[in-house]
Simulated assay, not measured.
Amino acid sequence: MNNYIYTFCQLILLSLTLTANAQKLHTTKWESGQLDRRTKVGVWEYYGYTASKERVVVQRYDHSTNELLYFRPSGEFIYNIEATPGQWQRHAVDRPPLFIGGDPALAVYTTQLQYPLQAQERNIQGQVTVGFAVDTLGRTSGHRVLRSIGGGCDQEALRVARTIPNEWIPARVGSHAVAAEYELTLTFRLAQP
């Protein structure tokens, strides 16, 4: 009987050792947390930088429970929210729709813009704003151009916005998640010779 208990305890210790070894601390300029076989687990911190270049935590997110633990508020949040099905209105929200990881994580997708040849040839530069709804489950839909510059840039901005995965945290009013419209501005600027 004692041999069985001893063997059982050894198996538990081996299992704990393997689990601990499988998780690795991952830290960059923008994020820090545990990876388990390339999957984010546990609580991660996401960073931003102030104008004085001080690193600050902008989000703390638990990837094991899919729960936002903290976000750094900045100003008042007024968004178009879906007050009743199909009826949208401007409203203050307690928490805006957030992309998990903040702006640096979102930049992984928005920096994949490919400058349209037509826009380059016609020297078209500027900003395209794409709007889309983030529903109460953090999924996006209804992508459309709100501010246009033409030359193929609008289509490219839409393409990029649609590649962003559904890793959104919905807006909240009080304790309730609400569908809200998010506006994403993408800049097209030609390199100076």
Results as ranks from 00 to 15, higher is better:
residue 51 A to M: 07
residue 52 S to G: 07
residue 44 W to A: 00
residue 48 G to E: 01
residue 28 T to M: 05
residue 35 L to G: 12
residue 23 Q to L: 07
residue 22 A to Q: 09
residue 29 K to M: 12
residue 41 V to C: 07
residue 26 H to C: 10
residue 21 N to V: 08
residue 51 A to Q: 11
residue 37 R to E: 12
residue 29 K to H: 15
residue 43 V to I: 14
residue 54 E to Q: 12
residue 35 L to K: 01
residue 49 Y to P: 00
residue 53 K to G: 06
residue 29 K to W: 14
residue 48 G to V: 04
residue 39 T to V: 15
residue 49 Y to T: 06
residue 27 T to V: 13
residue 40 K to S: 04
residue 32 S to R: 07
residue 46 Y to S: 00
residue 54 E to M: 03
residue 36 D to F: 13
residue 46 Y to R: 07
residue 35 L to T: 03
residue 39 T to G: 06
residue 55 R to L: 09
residue 38 R to N: 15
residue 27 T to L: 11
residue 34 Q to K: 15
residue 30 W to G: 05
residue 21 N to M: 10
residue 49 Y to V: 03
residue 33 G to T: 01
residue 55 R to N: 04
residue 39 T to C: 13
residue 36 D to A: 15
residue 46 Y to I: 00
residue 21 N to D: 09
residue 40 K to H: 09
residue 39 T to A: 14
residue 49 Y to G: 02
residue 39 T to Q: 12
residue 30 W to E: 11
residue 26 H to N: 08
residue 21 N to R: 07
residue 32 S to I: 06
residue 24 K to N: 09
residue 48 G to N: 02
residue 28 T to H: 08
residue 30 W to A: 08
residue 31 E to W: 00
residue 50 T to R: 04
residue 27 T to G: 09
residue 38 R to P: 01
residue 33 G to E: 02
residue 35 L to E: 01
residue 54 E to F: 04
residue 51 A to T: 03
residue 46 Y to D: 02
residue 35 L to Y: 01
residue 50 T to S: 08
residue 49 Y to E: 11
residue 51 A to R: 06
residue 48 G to W: 02
residue 49 Y to W: 13
residue 34 Q to D: 10
residue 51 A to S: 10
residue 23 Q to V: 13
residue 44 W to L: 09
residue 38 R to E: 15
residue 49 Y to M: 01
residue 55 R to H: 02
residue 37 R to C: 07
residue 45 E to G: 05
residue 48 G to P: 01
residue 45 E to R: 15
residue 24 K to A: 09
residue 28 T to V: 06
residue 52 S to W: 00
residue 44 W to Q: 00
residue 45 E to T: 06
residue 49 Y to N: 05
residue 21 N to I: 11
residue 29 K to R: 14
residue 23 Q to A: 14
residue 45 E to W: 10
residue 40 K to F: 02
residue 42 G to A: 10
residue 31 E to N: 02
residue 53 K to R: 12
residue 35 L to H: 06
residue 29 K to G: 08
residue 48 G to L: 06
residue 29 K to E: 14
residue 45 E to S: 14
residue 22 A to L: 11
residue 27 T to W: 12
residue 41 V to G: 02
residue 55 R to V: 06
residue 26 H to F: 13
residue 33 G to N: 05
residue 37 R to W: 13
residue 22 A to R: 09
residue 50 T to F: 05
residue 34 Q to M: 15
residue 30 W to F: 10
residue 55 R to Y: 04
residue 29 K to C: 08
residue 53 K to P: 02
residue 24 K to H: 10
residue 48 G to A: 05
residue 54 E to P: 00
residue 29 K to L: 13
residue 49 Y to H: 00
residue 36 D to N: 11
residue 24 K to R: 11
residue 32 S to M: 11
residue 50 T to A: 11
residue 51 A to D: 07
residue 53 K to N: 11
residue 38 R to S: 15
residue 26 H to K: 10
residue 37 R to N: 14
residue 49 Y to Q: 04
residue 25 L to T: 11
residue 27 T to Q: 13
residue 43 V to L: 05
residue 36 D to L: 12
residue 26 H to M: 14
residue 50 T to C: 08
